[in-house]
Simulated scan of single mutants.
Amino acid sequence: MDGRTGLPLVGMVGGGQLARMTHQAAISLGQSLRVLSVSADDSAALVAADVRIGSHTDLTALREFAGGCDAVTFDHEHVPGDHIRALEKDGIKVYPSADALIFAQDKGRMRERLSELGAPVPRWRRVRELADITGFGLPAVAKATTGGYDGRGVWMLQDEAQAQELIATGTSLIVEERVPLRRELAALVARSPFGQVAAYPIVETVQQDGICVEVIAPAPGLPEQRALEAQQLAIDLATALGVVGLLAVELFETDDDLMVNELAMRPHNSGHWTIEGARTSQFEQHLRAVLDYPMGATTLTAPVVVMANVLGGPPGGISIDERVHHLFAEDPGARVHLYGKQVRPGRKIGHVTVLGDDLAEVRARAARAAKRLQEGI
C-alpha cells in the first residue's frame, strides 16, 4: 500500500514499453507502479516515479524491490522460476505464479501441458539429436524452448544440412509441423485470483519477418462461432493453467480448425489497440486482475480498430518529433504511442492506433501513419 495515497502499490519487473503503458493505466486508477529496470534509460524508467535499478535474475534485488508491494507482476517472462517461488515463500503475491509462468517460459513444457489438456496444437516433438528432426519429417519448424521472441529462436528447416547445423549450436529445441495456416489470430483474456475472467474480441495479427506489424480488431470475416470457440479456449487455458493477470493466446487459423501457437502471460502486443479501442485497456485490466478487482468491460469503442507497430527505419532524415508534427497535420485522428526508445532499424519504437467504420480505410490510415513515423515520408 502506498502510504501517501492509501491505494495499492504494484511492482512490475521489467522496464520496457509494457511497464510504461501499465504505468499510464495506473495513474488514472490512483495506483502507484514500482518498476524494476536494468537501466535508467529503459522505456518505463524514463517516466515512472518509483524506479529501482536491478536485474530480474538477482534474487536480492527482487526481494528488495518487492518489499511493500501489494502485488508483483512482469512485463516479460524471463524471471527465473526459483526466484518467483522464493518471493512467494516470503509472502509476496506474485502474478502469474511460477507454476503458471513456466508454460510461457518453456515451449516444451507448454506443448506438453497443452497436449495433456487436449488443446489443439501442431504436431510436435522434443529434439535431443538429429534423428528427432529427420524422423519427424522435413520441412519443419524448429523453436528454441526458451528465450525466443519477435521471430528470434525460430528456424524454418528445409533439409538435413540445416537441421544438423542447428543441432550443433546446442540450443534446446522442439520441432513442429509447418501448419497450413490461413492467418494468425490472438485471443486475450484476463483472470483474477477470485476466478473472474474477461475476454476481448478476437483479433487478427499480421506478421512480417516474425514481427507483428498490424493488429485488426475484430478479426475481419471471422465467423461468430469460431470467435466464441477461440475466446472459450483462452478462458479454459487461463483457468487450467492458473493464470492471474492477462493471458494472450496466439492462434493459427486453418481452413478447418484453430491451433495454439504461443502463450504470453502479461500485456501483449496484440492488445495495444485496447488503449483507445476497448472500454478497458489491457493494461488497466491487468492491474485490476492482479489486485483482484472486478474486471472491466471489453467491448469495442468503434466498429473497426487497427494498430500498426512503428519500427525503427533507416538512419537519417527528419527527427522523430518532426515526423509526429507531419503525421498529426495529415491525420489528427491517429493516436500515437512512442516508447522513448533509441531508434534502431527494425526495433519496435512505438505504435499507432486508428478507429473508424470502414476496414479498408482504417487499415490504410494506420499503415500510412506508421510509415510516416518510421520513414519520415
Rank of each mutant, 00 (worst) to 15 (best):
I320P: 04
I320V: 08
D321E: 12
D321G: 07
D321S: 15
E322D: 13
R323T: 07
V324D: 05
V324P: 03
V324Q: 07
V324K: 11
H325Y: 06
L327P: 00
A329H: 12
D331E: 11
P332C: 07
G333L: 10
G333D: 13
G333E: 14
A334M: 08
R335A: 13
V336W: 13
H337Q: 13
H337M: 11
H337G: 08
Y339C: 08
Y339V: 03
G340R: 03
G340D: 07
K341Y: 06
K341G: 13
K341H: 10
Q342D: 12
Q342C: 10
V343T: 08
R344S: 15
R344T: 15
R344I: 05
R344D: 08
R344Q: 07
P345R: 02
P345S: 14
P345V: 11
G346Q: 01
R347M: 06
R347G: 15
I349Q: 01
I349G: 10
G350H: 03
H351M: 05
H351C: 06
H351N: 11
V352Y: 03
V352T: 05
V352L: 12
V352F: 04
T353H: 03
T353C: 07
V354E: 01
L355N: 02
L355W: 01
G356C: 10
G356W: 09
G356Q: 13
G356R: 05
D357E: 12
L359F: 07
A360K: 07
E361P: 05
E361Q: 08
R363G: 09
A364K: 03
R365T: 07
R365K: 09
A366I: 04
R368L: 10
R368W: 02
R368V: 12
A369T: 04
A369M: 10
A370V: 01
R372A: 15
R372E: 02
R372Q: 14
